[in-house]
Design a protein around this nucleic acid. Structure first.
Lengths: 106, 106
DNA sequence: ACTAAATTTCGATGTTTAGCTAAATATCGA
DNA sequence: TCGATATTTAGCTAAACATCGAAATTTAGT
């Protein structure tokens, strides 16, 4: 829980999550969109993964990252609900967009 | 916006916000509930204030802090909505709990 | 086996942050 | 004005963090 907020505290990482909202992307693809080095991006990915906000799937030499939407939402809404228990309901009983898949890169 | 997430990244600060959810409290009152020194708590208050998440009102020697609920909610839900535009609506058109008050301590 | 490509790990550096104690500031009540 | 109380500022240390370039790792293709 703390790790999620820590992960969200950095603008680069938030942007990464936003990019992954649309579709999964490879590490290189993501890195190309930021003005920092690849090792730096790699570290950001590690933080996001540590927080369980993304999944990684290795295919050949490339690693594809995918947003774990439900984890992010549960954390955000769970926290928000702490402050206004009446307000935000679970709302969309979403059909889990995470397909059976455990590609957690070894 | 970044300052808000930075502020939320620390567990002590999140707890402070939770305490203020119920009612405004003085700096000393809050400090008594944490196992850290008053100066340290003061620094946390400064971060929360910098992020515009709390208001301070000085009466005599004591400073009362109050949660700015709408700021917190707007940030949280605004960000959450980035990821599932369909899901969470503004919901409760809340009657602003912040009374006309500009006690921003000097 | 060799080479190229994608990504991470390693080691170093500068910045930020949380924490402390001690001192300063402000306000109240006597 | 004095003394007590509430809070912050100042000055510090230690740990955490973001960043880099260079090297290591892994895999694909020839």
């Amino acid at each position: 829980m703390n790790s999620i907020f820590k992960a969200l505290a950095d603008p680069t990482r938030r942007k990464v999550l936003e990019l992954l909202r649309e579709r999964p992307m490879t590490a290189g693809e993501l890195a190309d969109r930021f003005p920092v080095s690849r090792p730096t991006m790699s570290a950001h990915f590690a933080v996001l993964k540590e927080a369980d906000l993304i999944d990684s799937l290795k295919i050949g030499t490339t690693i594809t990252y995918q947003l774990k939407l439900t984890v992010l939402e549960d954390a955000l809404l769970g926290f928000a609900r702490l402050f206004s228990p009446t307000a935000e309901e679970p709302a969309t009983p979403r059909t889990d967009p995470t397909p059976p898949q455990e590609g957690t890169t070894k």
